[in-house]
Design a protein around this nucleic acid. Sequence first.
DNA 1: AGCACGCCGACT
DNA 2: GTCGGCGTGCTC
Length: 799
Amino acid sequence: MQVAQIIVDVPTRQTNNAYSYSIPDHLVDQIEPGMRVQVPFGNRKITGFVVGISDESSYDGKLKPIASLVDLSPVINPELLDLASWLADQTYSFQISCLQTMLPGGMRTKNKKKLIAQNSQVIDQFPEIFHGQQEIDYNRQQYDNATLSKILAGQKNGDIQVEYDLTNHARPIMLKAYQGNLNAKQVDEVRQTVRKNAVGQLKLLSLIKQQPDTVFLVSDLASKGITSSTLKNAEAKGWVVAKLKRHIRNPFMRPAKKSQPLQLNADQQAAVSSIDEAIAAQKDQVFLLEGVTGSGKTEVYLQSIAHALSLGRTALMLVPEITLTPQIVGRIRSRFGDQVAMLHSAMSSGERYDEWQRINTGKAKVVVGVRSAIFAPLQNIGLIIMDEEHDSSYKQADNPRYQTRDVAKWRAAYNHCPVVLGSATPSLESRARAMKGVYELLSLPHRINRQALPHVSIIDMKIEMAKHHEALSTQLKDAIQVRLDKHEQIILLLNRRGYSAFLMCRDCGYVPRCPNCDISLTMHKDTHTLNCHYCGHTEPIPTVCPQCHSKRIGFYGMGSQQLEEQVKNLFPTARVLRMDVDTTRKKGAHEAIIDQFGAHKADILLGTQMIAKGLDFPEVTLVGVLNADSALQFPDFRSSERTFELLTQVSGRSGRADKSGEVIIQTFNPDHYAIRLAKTQDYEKFYATEMRIRHDGKYPPYYFTVKLTGNSASENQTVSEMFGILNFLKKQLSSNAIILGPTPKVITRINNQYYYQIIIKYRKEPNLKAALDDILVQSQKKQRRGIQIAIDNEPLDFM
DNA sequence: AGCACGCCGACT
DNA sequence: GTCGGCGTGCTC
């Protein structure tokens, strides 16, 4: 008897292992690992992933049979199946969550499936399946086993395609089309009957004579001057037959112009050669490509990808969430054309689904995408690139809490291919590994056009604030005016953290706080409410202070909305664009703003982090950073690194073309090393300084870290539970391990749940893994009493 | 996640 | 005496 090992879709600790099911006779040899199936579990039917097939089961009890197939072919290939179980182990999460994250969002919704005939012969061949239709609902129950085999066979040889009926808009787009129904001789006969001035009809006839097998889209025909009425007529006369043609969405928005490889400078050439060598040698070497902004990293990527493709292999390129702009995608696509698939969260689930299909079927050879694209079902990968490798969007914030870099290395080892980590400001972890020789360091120290880096000046806001209480310093205001006069562009950056505006009573100091969370409410002018960013609580803006009844209650702090108003007041003639979470929420809005600014339809672009990265605006000659140090206030060991990265990156935004640039950084900590060294763009010195601090503080990369967070509705219970964990850990770990906490999180209460955390810092703790697994198993039992435990391996912050 | 099993309070 | 509260544990 054949037995399938199945991971069931029940995300709990106790069900986090494969269950055995017997394979019913009619499914023997049809079930493969990586397919999803419906299985009886307890007294209901749920979905599961087949992860293995064997002749025997280790389970003593009686096996239930698999009920039905969800997929007719695997949706998780063998590599990703292996990866999922490694990932679950690595991130202390459930196998099912890992498998699920590997599928494009739209496919996770299950149940309804459709069969689509790929050509008319198939429709005729299987009337019992298609009933003359091109597309029919697939419902397992309505077929006997013989029919099912036919479907499976058709699916294997490409006659039949399976589509998931996705609840959102992720369904295939079918466009109306026509195909000729006459042979050449018939066309010639028919042509005699048509009036000489029936241009449309004649055109149609010659088309179907020349390309009898082509299915013409109505829209294409229309552009050739063949109207829908002509087509209707032709259909009635039997010249053509109506068809539906699958339309693959094009998420690229604009067509790509073909481009050629650029001439490389010596440094780029050296980098490309090293990478090419590793690709050819099938070596899973990790390279750290370190290059200042404008040093031509992208061209190195492109030529390395080209090399992988020339060897018949595929390539995966990852970019941070915010950097995946049409600019960069356009550049890649112009080089590699339709071989490129893109995976981005701003795409609709339909677009992502289509792209995923193109990858899974091997049509796309190059994948460009954000974090989750690391799970793209590419085969025979020859190169993995992670651009801006230090970027924090590469770490997933919720389960499975993976670090993309680690997954990339895993896949590289599996595929025997190199990984290229690129950055102007590498993460300390990566740079330290490069120094130790674990990674190979490739450097691009020069800007392509040999252009000097912009002039950076630092404004001490303590002095400014003594003079006046405005967000813009005198120097920055003057500099803006100069650029406006010269008709040049300006970028103003507001550090995301701490940019929100809050309400405060000027008499008694009262600040409205969220009733469910431990933070002050932020004001939203558009809706005229006070909102909590954590739990979504909303309340009206009070006009008198609820505490002392004073009318002197007003706003403090600076949000991007407020900044926009101020800037508009100061420079009434300037055209200002704002880019932040509010203005980019709508699909395509992000691009629209970039396009507008790129076309110089605005003078000032202001916004948060998202304008700092990856954008190339040649006309920008001034970048102002309004609150460079707001990240420094945070009690986090990475805040200096974050600040340095951000400032270095925005500085690179200025003066990339022939005009020289200027950067003005406003700060309350002008002497902080992260700010001082960003001024001179001195990564080396920053690295040395920061490494010393990390060393002394026993932080990464000198120590490994794990963050354990516990939360429950009762503060007492959370604390006592966390102390229990602390004691357990103390017993399990060596005396070299440093265990911090339990401490309340910076925001202790969110949605009436109390959060406490324990940080473990260690160098070598062979027992740690088992201890943490044990804590999770234990916590599962305690969860019923309302406490939840989350483990974050190598967290990005300790907050 | 569901659902059954099982051991203690207020009801026909 | 019983109905049902939800704490606990299992699901191939």
